[in-house]
């Protein structure tokens, strides 16, 4: 049971760690770009949306997997 909980924690922790770094980089560059050139806002926000959508898919999947692992550990 302890191993299952540990596996769930590692899966979600590492997934969220990578996604937090990726999200921070994407949004910081997007805000910087929009502040420099507000006329490019449309294309920049679309690119940011695609990037964040892809980056966040992994931690959400890892969260669900962690949840399933916790369920099996009980």
């Amino acid at each position: 049971m302890v191993y299952g909980l540990l596996a769930a924690a590692i899966v979600f922790g590492l997934g969220a760690f990578g996604a937090s770094i990726g999200n921070g980089m994407i949004f910081s560059k997007t805000i910087e770009g929009i502040s420099r050139q507000p006329e490019l806002r449309g294309s920049l926000q679309t690119t940011a949306f695609i990037g964040v959508g892809l980056v966040e898919a992994l931690p959400i999947i890892s969260l669900v997997l962690a949840f399933i692992l916790m369920g099996q550990a009980e």
Binding site: A19, N23, T30, S35, R41, A48, V52, E56, P59, L63
Partner: peptide, 29 residues
């Protein structure tokens, strides 16, 4: 959320605090 962040960046305002990824993770969970 992306449109709101872009609005704030274009208007030169500071982003207010939010739950961010946690709200999306909560929807998935």
């Amino acid at each position: 959320k992306t449109v709101r962040v872009a609005d704030m960046a274009a208007g030169g305002r500071r982003s207010r605090g939010g739950f961010g990824f946690m709200s999306r993770a909560a929807i998935g969970l």
